[in-house]
C-alpha cells in the first residue's frame, strides 16, 4: 500500500510539473497581446515611459528562459510571485481564495452525493416504473443545461426577484464583525445556498445516473440474492449490500467530477461574486495578471490530481473486491 501511495504521489507531482511548464510557455509566448500594465489606453497619465519602467521593474523585459528559471525555482520553494492587479503576493491571494472555493465545491459535492446516491438507489430499486423513467429524463435534461444558465436563473428568480437569498457575496458585509461564530457560519451558509445549490444540482444529476447504473450492475449479483434469501427485506438488501458494493465506482466519479465542478465554479463564482479561485481566474485573465493566471492553473490541476489520486486510494480501500483481489 505504501509503495502504491509513493508511486501515485510521484506521478501526481510529475503531472503538475508538466502542467506548470506548459502553462508558463502558453502565457509567456509573446504573441500574447496583453501585458499587465497596458490597461488604460484612454488615460493620458499612462505614458510609454511609465509603462516601460513598470515592465522593467517586474522583470517582463528579461529573456523568457531567465524568467522561466526564476519562476519555477520560486515555485518549487512555494513562492508564486507577485500579483500586479492585486498588489500583493500571489500566495496571499491563494490563501484567501482557495478555502472559499473548497467550501463551495465541497458543499456542492456533499449535497450532490447525498441527493445523487439517494435518487440513483431509488431509481435502481424502482427500475422500469414511470416515476423512474421520468426522474431519469429529468436528470439527463439537467445534465444538458450549462452551469451558467442555471446560475443565471437562480440569480434572476430566487435572489433578485423573490429576495429569498442574497444576490452575491460570501457574507453580510455589515453584520459579520458583530456576529458570534455560529451566526457567522449561518450567514455564510445562507450566502452559499444558491451558488453551491447550482453546482450540487448538476453534480446530483450526474451522480444519480452513474449510481443507478452501478447499482444495477451489482443488484443481480449472487450475494444480493443470498441476502434476500436469508430473509432480509428487499429494501435492506438493496441498501446495505448493493449500496456498499457500489461505493467503489462511486469514488471514481468523485475523481471525475472534481474538474467538472471546478470548471462550473468559474461560472458560478463569477455570476454570484463568490470570491474564490474561479472569480480570481476570471479577474486575472481580464487584468493580464500572469503570475495569478499561472497560479490559478496550478491550483486547478493540483485539485484535480489530488481528487483523482484520492479516488484511486479510496477505491483500493473501499471496494471489497479490489481488497480481496477478486
Amino acid at each position: 500500500m505504501r509503495r502504491f501511495l509513493v508511486a501515485r504521489g510521484a506521478q501526481a507531482l510529475g503531472v503538475i510539473a508538466i502542467v506548470a511548464t506548459l502553462a508558463f510557455a502558453l502565457v509567456h509566448v509573446h504573441v500574447a497581446p496583453g501585458d499587465p500594465f497596458g490597461e488604460s489606453l484612454d488615460d493620458p497619465t499612462n505614458t510609454a515611459a511609465l509603462h516601460a519602467q513598470q515592465m522593467h521593474t517586474w522583470g517582463y523585459d528579461q529573456p523568457l528562459p531567465v524568467q522561466y528559471v526564476k519562476w519555477i525555482g520560486n515555485l518549487a520553494r512555494g513562492n508564486f510571485g507577485w500579483s500586479h492587479s492585486r498588489n500583493r503576493p500571489v500566495g496571499e491571494v491563494l490563501r484567501a481564495t482557495i478555502p472559499r472555493t473548497l467550501l463551495l465545491m465541497g458543499t456542492a459535492l456533499l449535497i450532490g452525493l447525498l441527493g445523487g446516491v439517494a435518487l440513483g438507489t431509488w431509481q435502481a430499486a424502482r427500475r422500469g416504473t414511470i416515476a423512474e423513467r421520468v426522474s431519469g429524463a429529468v436528470a439527463l435534461t439537467l445534465l444538458s443545461v450549462p452551469e451558467f444558465l442555471v446560475a443565471l436563473a437562480a440569480l434572476a428568480l430566487p435572489a433578485a426577484r423573490w429576495h429569498w437569498f442574497p444576490v452575491s457575496g460570501m457574507a453580510d458585509p455589515a453584520g459579520q464583525d458583530s456576529m458570534n461564530a455560529l451566526a457567522r457560519a449561518g450567514d455564510v451558509l445562507w450566502h452559499l445556498a444558491l451558488p453551491a445549490g447550482t453546482l450540487a444540482l448538476l453534480a446530483a444529476a450526474a451522480i444519480s445516473r452513474y449510481h443507478r447504473t452501478a447499482m444495477l450492475a451489482v443488484l443481480p449479483e449472487e450475494f444480493v440474492r443470498t441476502a434476500r434469501v436469508k430473509g432480509a427485506s428487499e429494501f435492506g438488501a438493496v441498501v446495505r449490500h448493493a449500496l456498499a458494493n457500489s461505493l467503489g465506482p462511486l469514488t471514481t466519479i468523485i475523481g471525475v467530477l472534481v474538474p467538472a465542478l471546478f470548471g462550473g465554479a468559474v461560472f458560478v463564482e463569477t455570476i454570484f461574486s463568490w470570491p474564490g479561485v474561479g472569480r480570481m481566474m476570471f479577474d486575472a485573465v481580464h487584468g493580464n495578471d500572469y503570475p495569478l493566471v499561472l497560479a490559478g492553473v496550478i491550483v486547478g490541476s493540483v485539485l484535480v490530481v489530488a481528487g483523482s489520486t484520492l479516488a484511486d486510494v479510496l477505491l483500493a480501500l473501499v471496494d471489497p473486491r479490489v481488497r480481496t483481489g477478486a
Binding site: A23, L26, A32, P33, G263, V266, F282, V285, V293, V297
Partner: peptide, 14 residues
C-alpha cells in the same frame, strides 16, 4: 488535470 474551462481561459488570455 487542468479543468478545461481554466485551460480555455488561459488560452484566451494569451
Amino acid at each position: 488535470s487542468v479543468p478545461r474551462v481554466l485551460l480555455l481561459l488561459v488560452l484566451v488570455a494569451t
